[in-house]
Structures are given as structure tokens and as C-alpha cells.
Deep mutational scan, measured.
Amino acid sequence: MQNSHSGVNQLGGVFVNGRPLPDSTRQKIVELAHSGARPCDISRILQVSNGCVSKILGRYYETGSIRPRAIGGSKPRVATPEVVSKIAQYKRECPSIFAWEIRDRLLSEGVCTNDNIPSVSSINRVLRNLASEKQQMGADGMYDKLRMLNGQTGSWGTRPGWYPGTSVPGQPTQDGCQQQEGGGENTNSISSNGEDSDEAQMRLQLKRKLQRNRTSFTQEQIEALEKEFERTHYPDVFARERLAAKIDLPEARIQVWFSNRRAKWRREEKLRNQRRQASNTPSHIPISSSFSTSVYQPIPQPTTPVSSFTSGSMLGRTDTALTNTYSALPPMPSFTMANNLPMQPPVPSQTSSYSCMLPTSPSVNGRSYDTYTPPHMQTHMNSQPMGTSGTTSTGLISPGVSVPVQVPGSEPDMSQYWPRLQ
């Protein structure tokens, strides 16, 4: 039975679970980093996980050691009161100082060594604690504590007292930064006198190289990059290397530039699409467009005044059976039934097929058609009795279509119309 579990990581490298990497692998990681390889490249070359490479390099940059820390136990506290007071002093002298600059000053002034120097995250935590204590304490208590930490007896009751030896409130920041720059020169002199001055200088240079600022491109470089971006948004590694040799930039910087440029292009394309949609959409909808001609068919113009009344309900007709019959029939052209047409008796099958359309009241044959006459024609229609054979009435077949029909004066039988409509 094995005491430890061995495995293979996602890159194909072998590791022992819970145990640190061998010293030979750690040394190779540092050597590759000094030669300029990126952590992701080191991870692929040595088949070590990216997190492990970053952790080893980060500890090497901070402490200069590649040895693993002790497994188990607690780390001794490195942010001692003396170190905290120095950090507060540096922050007062130059409020814009960075944590890694404070760390360098602690090393250069001999406050800490490589073994007990606090990390950048520890210094940031100390600065946050100082800021929170400043908010919790009152103004007087804060000034007393700062005077105690600074070891001075001057008056701290006013704002300019934060910067000793100065009279203009805006000047101390520059003086403090100048003092810090002077301390940086002392850093070089002190570290050069040490035993491991060369190694420390190499480590600091490598650290500065990794902690780079934003790349500033010249106009020629920007023009070359934009020209390549117009050709393709995704250049391959050969195109990037050719462009890197042409404009004297690292291939990694060119790759990052193209990634950022593609993101910018997507944002601009989104804005262009929004403007295009806004320009195509009308600002207001016309009133006429809300009524579609496919839904509402136009009603033909009436030929006679009587045809303006298109349904039985508008003429005072309360018989719903006839109203439904007229509205359900398709529109037909106007025609006239003459008196000489043969009077065919209704076929029983045809009569039964339209039995649902006729009223059940037996008085329908005896009703006159003056009910369908509009009010303004009552006088004219009353002067001509319906009993004469020459009287013409208008029957409504569908809305908007008038059918003048000659009705025999002897017997106005409704059943004569249905064979004609089939």
C-alpha cells in the first residue's frame, strides 16, 4: 500500500499530492522566468500547473527564495509595531506611495530583511487598517496617535501638521516623493554593498519588468496595427511575429492590442446598429396606417339613396333571421326581375335548405315592403301603392349592394327569390 497518492495534472505532468515540487523543477521555473518566458509558457514547457508556477515565482520575487514554506503551523507575524509605524510614516510623507514602493524602502533602510519582509498584500492590509482606524477615531485622537508614531512633539492640530517642515499644504506631496526618490538612490547604494547585491538587483529588475506600465504606442505603430486590423481581426502567430519585427513591439503586446481592438470594434458596431435601427424607425405612426385595407374592405359607393341603408337594423327591421341572411350572402350585381318571367313554384328541397333563413311567422307573405323604405322617402312611396304591378321595390342582398326588384302586385311571395340566388 502506497503512503502517498501520485497523479497526472491537466498538462500531463506527474505530481505527488500534498508534497511540494522538487527543487530542480523550481530552479528551472526561475531560470525560464529570467530568460523572459511568460508564466503560461513555463507552465506548458515544464508541465506544471499555472497556479503552481505563479505561486513559486511570486514567492521568489518577494523573498528571493525558491524553497517551499513549512507545511503546517502558523507563519510568524511580520507586521510588527515597528514595521507598522514605518509604513504609516512613509504614507504620511508621500500619500500616493504604492505598497511595493513601501516594501522596497523597508528593505533599503534595513527595517526588514528578506526573511521577515511583509508581502505587498500585508502592507496593503496595514494601510487599510490605518485608514479604518482613522475613520473610527476622532480628529484629536487621530492626531495624537500619528504624533506618537512619528515621534515628534510638534502641533498636529492642523492639517499642514501632517507634513512636517512644510508650510504650503500643496507642497508636502512633492517633497515626500522627492525624499522617497532619494531613498531609492540609497536603495541602490545599500544593496550594492550587501553580499547578495547582484541577486537582489536582478530580482528587482525582473520584478519591475513584470510590473509594467501601460504600453505607449507611437503613431507609426498605431498606423501599422490599424492597417493589419483592417486586413483581418484575428491575425495568426506568423502575422503577429512579422508585425512585431516590423514595428519593434513584443508579440504578446500585439496580441493584447488586437484583443482590445476587437472589443472596441464590437462596441462601435453595436452603436452603429442602434443608430441604423433608430433612423429606419419613423418618429410617429401615421393615422391612416393604423387601418389596414386588408382588414377593412372598402364599401362601394351607393348608386341610389335607398342603398345607403345596408342592414335591417338601420331600417328599423327587427327580424334577425333576414338580417343574418342578407349579411351572409355574397355580393351580387344589380339585376331586375321582369313581370314576364315565369313564376316557378319553389322546389321543396330548395325551400327546406333555406328554411332556417325565413321567419317562422306566416304573415311574411302579407307584409308590405314599406318597412324598408327610409324616412325621407315615405311620402313618395305612399303616393304609389304597392298593389300595382309596376311598383318597384329595392331588396338588399349584402352591405353596400342594392338590387332593384320588380315585385308582382298580386302576391309578394318571398319564396320566388331563392331559386334565382343559387
Results as ranks from 00 to 15, higher is better:
residue 48 V to S: 03
residue 31 E to C: 07
residue 106 L to M: 13
residue 112 C to F: 04
residue 103 R to D: 03
residue 126 V to G: 06
residue 92 R to G: 10
residue 136 Q to G: 14
residue 7 G to S: 06
residue 137 M to V: 11
residue 40 C to M: 14
residue 134 K to S: 14
residue 124 N to S: 05
residue 109 E to F: 10
residue 42 I to R: 02
residue 43 S to M: 06
residue 62 E to G: 12
residue 111 V to Y: 15
residue 84 V to P: 02
residue 51 G to Y: 00
residue 108 S to C: 09
residue 45 I to Y: 13
residue 140 D to K: 12
residue 54 S to T: 14
residue 141 G to F: 09
residue 18 G to H: 00
residue 64 G to P: 01
residue 75 K to S: 07
residue 122 S to Q: 02
residue 27 Q to G: 11
residue 48 V to C: 14
residue 24 S to R: 13
residue 103 R to S: 11
residue 147 R to G: 10
residue 115 D to W: 10
residue 23 D to T: 05
residue 17 N to H: 00
residue 103 R to W: 04
residue 120 V to E: 03
residue 144 D to L: 10
residue 34 H to T: 08
residue 126 V to K: 15
residue 6 S to C: 08
residue 38 R to Q: 05
residue 68 P to T: 03
residue 17 N to R: 00
residue 63 T to V: 06
residue 75 K to C: 05
residue 39 P to E: 05
residue 93 E to K: 13
residue 68 P to N: 02
residue 12 G to H: 03
residue 6 S to I: 05
residue 62 E to R: 07
residue 46 L to S: 04
residue 66 I to W: 05
residue 88 A to N: 13
residue 133 E to M: 13
residue 125 R to C: 00
residue 114 N to E: 12
residue 16 V to E: 11
residue 133 E to T: 14
residue 111 V to H: 13
residue 116 N to I: 13
residue 118 P to E: 01
residue 9 N to M: 01
residue 99 A to C: 06
residue 46 L to R: 01
residue 83 V to M: 03
residue 140 D to F: 11
residue 99 A to P: 01
residue 124 N to E: 03
residue 29 I to V: 06
residue 29 I to H: 02
residue 12 G to F: 02
residue 4 S to H: 13
residue 94 C to D: 14
residue 35 S to I: 08
residue 55 K to W: 03
residue 76 P to T: 05
residue 77 R to M: 04
residue 13 G to S: 02
residue 65 S to T: 12
residue 34 H to F: 14
residue 2 Q to Y: 11
residue 130 L to G: 09
residue 5 H to Y: 12
residue 7 G to F: 10
residue 90 Y to V: 08
residue 30 V to N: 01
residue 45 I to F: 11
residue 5 H to A: 10
residue 96 S to D: 15
residue 13 G to Y: 01
residue 89 Q to S: 10
residue 134 K to C: 05
residue 86 K to P: 04
residue 61 Y to D: 15
residue 13 G to R: 09
residue 89 Q to I: 12
residue 76 P to C: 09
residue 108 S to H: 11
residue 115 D to Q: 07
residue 11 L to H: 07
residue 102 I to V: 02
residue 29 I to N: 02
residue 101 E to F: 08
residue 116 N to D: 15
residue 89 Q to L: 12
residue 98 F to M: 06
residue 106 L to R: 02
residue 10 Q to T: 09
residue 16 V to H: 07
residue 9 N to F: 02
residue 31 E to I: 06
residue 121 S to C: 05
residue 82 E to S: 13
residue 146 L to V: 12
residue 25 T to V: 12
residue 111 V to I: 14
residue 89 Q to E: 10
residue 96 S to I: 07
residue 83 V to K: 09
residue 91 K to Y: 02
residue 31 E to K: 09
residue 56 I to N: 00
residue 17 N to M: 00
residue 93 E to H: 10
residue 138 G to A: 13
residue 105 R to K: 08
residue 146 L to D: 07
residue 111 V to L: 14
residue 68 P to G: 02
residue 74 S to A: 01
residue 105 R to I: 12
residue 84 V to F: 04
residue 138 G to V: 07
residue 25 T to M: 11
residue 40 C to A: 15
residue 34 H to L: 07
residue 4 S to G: 11
residue 85 S to F: 14
residue 144 D to T: 10
residue 85 S to E: 14
residue 6 S to W: 04
residue 21 L to D: 02
residue 113 T to V: 10
residue 14 V to H: 06
residue 48 V to W: 04
residue 135 Q to G: 09
residue 97 I to A: 15
residue 114 N to R: 11
residue 130 L to S: 15
residue 140 D to W: 10
residue 122 S to T: 00
residue 103 R to G: 15
residue 71 I to G: 04
residue 115 D to G: 08
residue 67 R to K: 05
residue 10 Q to R: 09
residue 36 G to Q: 06
residue 130 L to C: 15
residue 10 Q to N: 06
residue 80 T to W: 01
residue 139 A to Q: 07
residue 15 F to Y: 08
residue 60 Y to Q: 00
residue 120 V to T: 00
residue 60 Y to L: 03
residue 54 S to G: 15
residue 73 G to T: 00
residue 98 F to Q: 04
residue 143 Y to I: 11
residue 100 W to M: 06
residue 147 R to W: 09
residue 87 I to K: 01
residue 23 D to Q: 07
residue 93 E to A: 09
residue 21 L to T: 12
residue 63 T to A: 05
residue 13 G to K: 04
residue 94 C to V: 09
residue 49 S to W: 03
residue 80 T to R: 11
residue 70 A to K: 05
residue 95 P to E: 12
residue 10 Q to G: 10
residue 114 N to M: 11
residue 117 I to P: 14
residue 7 G to D: 15
residue 45 I to H: 10
residue 94 C to I: 11
residue 5 H to F: 12
residue 89 Q to V: 12
residue 8 V to A: 03
residue 111 V to G: 12
residue 30 V to C: 07
residue 15 F to K: 03
residue 37 A to N: 07
residue 126 V to E: 03
residue 30 V to Y: 03
residue 31 E to W: 02
residue 38 R to P: 05
residue 7 G to H: 10
residue 27 Q to R: 08
residue 6 S to L: 06
residue 97 I to F: 07
residue 13 G to L: 02
residue 17 N to Y: 00
residue 33 A to L: 06
residue 43 S to K: 02
residue 120 V to H: 03
residue 4 S to I: 09
residue 61 Y to A: 14
residue 144 D to I: 13
residue 91 K to G: 00
residue 116 N to P: 10
residue 130 L to R: 08
residue 2 Q to M: 09
residue 72 G to P: 00
residue 64 G to D: 02
residue 87 I to H: 00
residue 5 H to S: 09
residue 69 R to K: 07
residue 18 G to T: 03
residue 58 G to A: 05
residue 80 T to G: 06
residue 138 G to T: 08
residue 61 Y to E: 05
residue 17 N to Q: 00
residue 14 V to D: 05
residue 120 V to M: 03
residue 36 G to C: 06
residue 134 K to P: 07
residue 143 Y to W: 11
residue 110 G to E: 11
residue 34 H to V: 14
residue 92 R to A: 14
residue 99 A to Y: 01
residue 47 Q to F: 11
residue 50 N to H: 15
residue 22 P to R: 06
residue 138 G to M: 13
residue 89 Q to G: 15
residue 30 V to H: 02
residue 36 G to D: 06
residue 10 Q to P: 02
residue 142 M to V: 12
residue 75 K to D: 03
residue 21 L to K: 01
residue 9 N to K: 01
residue 133 E to S: 10
residue 40 C to P: 04
residue 135 Q to A: 10
residue 57 L to A: 00
residue 99 A to W: 03
residue 5 H to N: 11
residue 88 A to I: 03
residue 37 A to E: 07
residue 87 I to N: 00
residue 41 D to N: 13
residue 25 T to Y: 07
residue 23 D to H: 08
residue 96 S to F: 15
residue 101 E to I: 10
residue 31 E to M: 10
residue 110 G to Q: 08
residue 22 P to Q: 15
residue 132 S to D: 09
